[in-house]
Design a binder for these strands. Structure first.
Lengths: 233, 233
DNA sequence: GATCGTCTTTGCGCCAGCGCAAGCCCTGGC
DNA sequence: GCCAGGGCTTGCGCTGGCGCAAAGACGATC
């Protein structure tokens, strides 16, 4: 077991309130899954049979409409759960989960095994619920941003959220830990890839951030926060 | 106890899987609250101490930002719960709940009494969770609509949702059971009251719906569904 | 290291929807 | 029955952001 990645699992907030030994017990009952870039872990509408925890890499959760429009719900990184809906009842996955980096590793618990573990550790069920309500609040925040803010502010908020969720501090600033296309940022912000490109460029020349290929580095979180709040951009 | 309104409580989906006697037992342990139009039941950020079920009337749930922007989360009608977050853990209400019709009646269960009841009837906890995940899906649907649809389509979808959730069949069509201002529809749809006014007017002259004061009647659900799907309006 | 496909940038024209302003219509209070 | 205030409608001008098109940059693959 590679120690670095198992570490993220052991520290997962899903296991809050459990001893190290109890956490090991959970991991002992999990199955390991490795995904290639672009490979689906679960598809929207499928019956939810497994609960997952990301070990390393990233998943992209999307919702697709009947007529093909896609929306990015969020990204799931190391230590974060996917498929919490399984803990409730036999239901369907509400979103599709795709690996966005090569060699994404996840742990899986089949429904029956999870049910037994949750009965033994009821605290974990509460933790899963807590996570789900946090995502609920998140979704409402996005609705609010979409209805009250301009594109620039929304993009700034999106970047700040990404930096908070999966940012790695570097000398130059906060690096967003997974590759992101303009198209993906557009889907997360509710705009087009053209507008994202233009806006990022403006911010890059202003020195707020740096875009190098598909890597983004936020150089000044405070200035980005200003952009997220201000009426102007 | 007025039979008509208690009926909505007894039939509430929150009590799915319980016998009539068990439902009566729950109601027996509730407190009754009566609200005037505009009176708050709970405020965003307050510690969540009580779980509620609407008996008659309607609540409007809103989220307000630091700088005063308001978003309507949803309306809560007879038989529907509010404050499900209490069932999880001692947490804060994520939204503000206001009565939108005069003499709105709700039943309240204080935290301790609810906890005891949920331990006795674990099925109800699952039902509350089910309700919460449904709202989660709802929020994601709104995000998708806001990012991929034009104003006309979003407004049509909003009206269809309202009709489904709290519509009363009449000779002429489906009546939306609570008063709605143009401003409120605008907040739910992510547009301005002007655009709502213009769009509704166009649809009214086309015979799709009728707007009489603050009452809305959807005369043709199928034509409204077309408008929700089509690229044109 | 050449090729191909994917992603990005940017010029340009266009229009959906915004928001002010002004006047109208209800509705509820006295 | 009258008045006041909140909500509704609609004309009008303006602009933020869309989206096509074309050219460039990058990065995987053999």
């Amino acid at each position: 077991m590679p120690p670095a990645s198992a570490d993220a699992l052991l520290r997962s907030r899903i296991f809050d309130g459990l001893t190290d030994l109890e956490r090991e017990r959970w991991l002992g009952e999990s199955e390991q899954v490795v995904l290639k870039r672009g490979q689906p872990l679960a598809r929207q509408g499928e019956p939810a049979r497994r609960f997952y925890l990301v070990e390393c890499g990233f998943l992209k959760l999307t919702q697709v409409t009947a007529d093909g429009d896609e929306v990015i719900v969020r990204f799931v990184g190391p230590g974060e759960p996917f498929g919490g809906v399984v803990a409730l009842k036999q239901a369907d996955y509400p979103v599709t989960a795709l690996a966005v980096v090569h060699q994404t590793q996840v742990r899986a618990w089949p429904y029956e095994r999870l049910a037994a573990l949750l009965d033994a550790f009821p605290q974990v069920r509460l933790n899963i619920m807590r996570e789900m309500t946090a995502h609920m609040t998140d979704a409402l925040t996005r609705v609010r941003e979409l209805t009250t803010e301009r594109v620039g502010q929304r993009l700034a908020h999106t970047l700040l959220r990404l930096a908070r969720q999966c940012g790695e501090p570097t000398k130059e600033g906060v690096l967003i830990a997974h590759p992101l296309t303009r198209q993906e940022l557009a889907e997360m912000t509710g705009t087009t890839l053209y507008t994202v490109s233009r806006t990022l460029r403006r911010w890059e020349t202003a020195g707020v951030l740096r875009s190098e290929g598909r890597r983004l580095i936020v150089r000044s979180t405070t200035r980005l926060t200003d952009l997220a709040g201000d009426e102007e951009d």
